[in-house]
Amino acid sequence: MSGTTESNKHLHKSLKFILIIAQVFGFFPVKGILCDYVFSLRYFSISARELLSLFVCVIGWLDCLANVRILINSGFNAHYLNGAVFSFSNATYFFLFLRLAREWPKFMKHLVRLENQLFARYNWPHNFDFNVKLFATIFLCWELVEHVAVQGNKIIVAINCKGSFELVIQHYLKTMGFRQEFELIHYSHLRGVILQAVNTCFACCWTYVDLFILLVSYYFTARFKQIRKHVLSLKNDKIISEKEWRDVREDHNQLCNICALFNKKLSSFILLSVFTNIYYMVFHIFRIVNVKHTTLEFVYFILSFGLLISRTIGMCWVGGLLFEETRAFLPALASTPTKMCNIEIDRFIEEVRCRSIGFTGKKFFTINKLLILKVKPFIIFFVKK
């Protein structure tokens, strides 16, 4: 295949569904995502999509500062601390997605050249596209239900507290929603609606980040698994051809390089996601143990905490599968019979031994199945405090 020919299946085409959702909510501003071909992807430094993402970033960081101002002036308040963490983390996610969008067309063009080789040799991972849509539908619909529940509870409270429609809207947007901002600027319905729209974008982004990490991890896990199975097939069939082993070694090496490149760009997402998820786990457990709730508030807790735990475990589990899959090559290669060994197998073993592949949080930790258990004592300590 030529360098500009694409196979019928590739990562961008499989992720197109969730990339469209990202742009609906104002982040990941890449032009051409509706096309199936990565060579149609473009990024423009000055565009409406980029300006929208920057606008949401600025609003989020200003909202964080408004919450911090109240914390400084009035002392600790869990509501405003949550607001500061929520706004800061999601505004930062928007900024990180903006940076990733600038590199995305180049990443995908680089990846599709490798996928042309992989598709010809291993085909496409079984049920990958279906599972991508399944994961995305479950987590994003769950987030939608959770967001509607919390906003619905606020609207019900606002209706019970105020009489006229205009006063209900003002109470919902100003008093219950964005009091910290409207202590600094004059209230208007338009400003309140804009802040509520930004809040909705942040709610989607909060879940989307974990979903995105999970799906990219799933892709690399599936690809490494295909290559490992091919290694086992070569070994079981007693193939001694150096060319066959060179091809599979080069496939593995190139996939490792692409995975390392993705890790470099996603590690900031991972680090921020893990720490904010831990914070909200602590907060949710503390609230349910120490604060009385109405029935509707308890339902919201179940939805919110269940979503938080599910997506965190999902991200750690699939990231852990990638971690384990890349380490399964060494035992498979090391057990190759001596009479089959050649220079390509020796090189393959040395490359696998010297490389550590997996998604990390800025190299502070590697995503694996035990990560959530490692932070369990940390969570229990703060809940008891």
Score class of each variant (00 low, 15 high):
residue 5 T to G: 07
residue 8 N to V: 11
residue 8 N to W: 09
residue 10 H to Q: 09
residue 15 L to A: 08
residue 21 I to P: 01
residue 22 A to H: 06
residue 22 A to K: 03
residue 23 Q to K: 08
residue 25 F to E: 11
residue 25 F to C: 03
residue 26 G to D: 01
residue 32 G to P: 05
residue 32 G to A: 01
residue 34 L to P: 05
residue 36 D to S: 15
residue 40 S to D: 15
residue 41 L to V: 04
residue 41 L to F: 05
residue 42 R to F: 03
residue 44 F to I: 11
residue 44 F to G: 06
residue 51 L to G: 01
residue 51 L to T: 06
residue 52 L to I: 11
residue 52 L to P: 02
residue 53 S to V: 02
residue 55 F to P: 07
residue 57 C to F: 11
residue 58 V to D: 09
residue 61 W to Q: 10
residue 69 R to V: 09
residue 70 I to E: 15
residue 72 I to P: 00
residue 73 N to P: 00
residue 77 N to H: 14
residue 81 L to D: 14
residue 83 G to D: 13
residue 84 A to E: 12
residue 84 A to Q: 12
residue 85 V to W: 10
residue 85 V to E: 07
residue 95 F to I: 02
residue 98 L to C: 06
residue 102 R to I: 04
residue 111 L to C: 14
residue 117 Q to P: 02
residue 120 A to Y: 01
residue 121 R to D: 13
residue 121 R to F: 05
residue 123 N to Q: 11
residue 124 W to N: 07
residue 125 P to T: 03
residue 126 H to K: 15
residue 129 D to S: 10
residue 131 N to C: 10
residue 133 K to E: 14
residue 134 L to E: 14
residue 135 F to Y: 15
residue 138 I to L: 08
residue 139 F to R: 01
residue 139 F to S: 01
residue 140 L to W: 06
residue 141 C to W: 08
residue 142 W to R: 00
residue 146 E to I: 04
residue 152 G to R: 08
residue 155 I to W: 14
residue 156 I to G: 02
residue 158 A to F: 00
residue 158 A to S: 09
residue 159 I to V: 08
residue 165 F to K: 08
residue 167 L to H: 08
residue 168 V to F: 01
residue 173 L to A: 02
residue 174 K to Q: 15
residue 183 E to A: 10
residue 185 I to Y: 11
residue 191 R to L: 05
residue 191 R to G: 05
residue 193 V to M: 07
residue 194 I to L: 09
residue 195 L to H: 03
residue 200 T to N: 07
residue 200 T to Y: 15
residue 201 C to P: 00
residue 202 F to R: 14
residue 203 A to R: 12
residue 203 A to D: 14
residue 204 C to N: 07
residue 205 C to H: 00
residue 208 Y to N: 05
residue 213 I to Y: 03
residue 218 Y to E: 07
residue 219 Y to E: 11
residue 219 Y to N: 08
residue 221 T to G: 04
residue 223 R to M: 08
residue 230 H to N: 05
residue 232 L to H: 03
residue 233 S to I: 01
residue 236 N to A: 06
residue 236 N to G: 03
residue 237 D to I: 00
residue 240 I to R: 11
residue 241 S to H: 05
residue 242 E to P: 04
residue 243 K to A: 04
residue 250 E to L: 12
residue 254 Q to C: 09
residue 255 L to I: 10
residue 262 F to L: 09
residue 262 F to R: 00
residue 264 K to T: 10
residue 265 K to C: 06
residue 266 L to P: 00
residue 268 S to E: 04
residue 274 V to H: 06
residue 275 F to G: 01
residue 280 Y to G: 03
residue 285 I to L: 12
residue 290 N to E: 13
residue 296 L to S: 13
residue 303 L to W: 07
residue 304 S to H: 09
residue 305 F to I: 03
residue 305 F to R: 10
residue 309 I to G: 03
residue 310 S to R: 02
residue 311 R to C: 05
residue 312 T to R: 01
residue 313 I to N: 03
residue 319 G to E: 01
residue 321 L to W: 02
residue 323 F to I: 04
residue 325 E to W: 02
residue 326 T to W: 01
residue 329 F to G: 02
residue 331 P to T: 13
residue 335 S to Y: 07
residue 337 P to S: 08
residue 338 T to N: 15
residue 342 N to W: 09
residue 345 I to F: 10
residue 345 I to D: 08
residue 351 E to G: 08
residue 352 V to T: 07
residue 358 G to Q: 05
residue 361 G to R: 04
residue 365 F to W: 07
residue 369 K to M: 13
residue 369 K to F: 01
residue 375 V to F: 02
residue 375 V to P: 00
residue 384 K to R: 11
residue 385 K to A: 15
residue 385 K to H: 12
